[in-house]
Design a binder for these strands. Structure first.
Lengths: 216, 216
DNA sequence: CTCACTCGTGGCTTTCACTGACATTAAGTG
DNA sequence: CACTTAATGTCAGTGAAAGCCACGAGTGAG
């Protein structure tokens, strides 16, 4: 089965499962219900997900997908603040409605994770993946091996901060707070990462062609 | 049932479960086996633990119990380096054999968590608890509410760093590395926390009676 | 002491998440 | 069209977890 098609199906299942989890809770949602909602047999659900809770993983991962994509494309000659702000502006222009809907669903799952232990494990596992990927990005940026202890410490601290910000902003938005209040989310993430890594991650690692603007 | 008695029983179950997990793997260990090893009925096991994997949680938590106790007793007028080093020395003098055995078991579980996803979730959940408690400690120290965003960011970054150090040192010890190599573990933890919080957590928050020694 | 009451536990039973083995279908290829 | 292959469906398990009821040990009141 094509990787792409497989992932799309997993995402489709995850959307329905997340919706049901949100509407009636995790415990009250059975594998049969998920299967029926997607229009597949129950057996097929278990072929694509090893557990009921993990059905939420693809949607939950999408909650940090933008951050990860942005980090992966972080040019060596830009500060984190510069890059994140620019990408955030670009995102607001090119926002894909499907991605926005998935994001809202992801926020709900992360919020649910506050009270539903099985979902919290899914969220923490997703953040664990983020941490591993971030270790790779930081390692490349600092020109160190990916399993270097210092790199792992930076990755853990930075991804921990990223997780807290995601939980905080998501919860606030679900509580009906004004989204404009988080227009500076990119700067907040950047400064949190910079602080969590003691300044080791955040600066340009290569001289830009032109002089960089000051960062205060 | 008395809190204390209940916790002791949970710990007893956890010891046996962890031993079986280590000896024969998580999948190969059944709830019945755990029950038989402790001398309780299977039904009672499920009354005390919501899942098979979570049977490892109390032992896993003990892997960070010393750090948490030490943090809880961190006097306002000492730096983290000073306090941790002093406590580490004290621990080496007063080491309780039972605690040492539990610690070894905990290290094995954390190592197992590398390859067994269900145990990894248990480890991450334990670290999540550590983070929450650390948030309380940091909040008190900085005289801020426990749900303050900055406090949560510090707690996440600090507990993430603590987790990585635990994984790193535990794995090294299990691989037979010389324990003397980690004699400076306390300083490493302290400096990692200090760095992960941008220096916000680590300094004394109250003038000591006498002048504090320098910290380099 | 003893009756009543609570609480932790054991055994039996059920539910349901999840798996293995095999049948079936759909799509591609000659 | 027959043949292959991959994806899904069907059905009968397995085992983790929960419901239910009963037992026995403690405890306090009378």
């Amino acid at each position: 089965m094509k990787e792409q098609r497989r992932d799309r199906l997993r995402l489709e299942i995850s959307r329905e499962a997340s919706r049901l989890f949100w509407e009636q809770g995790v415990d009250a949602t059975s594998g049969d219900q998920i299967a029926e909602a997607v229009g597949l047999s129950t057996r097929t659900i278990w072929r694509h997900f090893r557990s009921k809770e993990s059905c939420a993983e693809p949607i939950v991962s999408r909650g940090v997908a933008w951050e990860m994509r942005t980090l992966r494309g972080w040019p060596a000659d830009l500060s984190l603040e510069e890059h994140f702000s620019a990408e955030a502006i670009r995102f607001h222009r090119e926002a894909d409605p499907v991605e926005i809907a998935d994001n809202a669903l992801a926020m709900r799952m992360i919020r649910l994770a506050d009270t539903e232990p099985p979902l919290r494990t899914a969220w923490l596992m997703a953040c664990d993946q983020v941490e591993r990927e971030m270790a790779g990005i930081i390692a490349k940026r600092l020109d160190l091996p990916a399993d270097d202890l210092q790199v792992r410490l930076h990755a853990a601290a930075a991804s921990g901060a990223l997780r807290v910000l995601n939980e905080h902003i998501g919860a606030a938005l679900l509580d009906g707070e004004d989204p404009a209040q988080f227009a500076d989310a990119a700067e907040r993430v950047a400064s949190a990462v910079r602080r969590a890594t003691g300044g080791a991650v955040g600066d340009p690692v290569k001289d830009p062609i032109a002089t960089a603007p000051d960062r205060g």
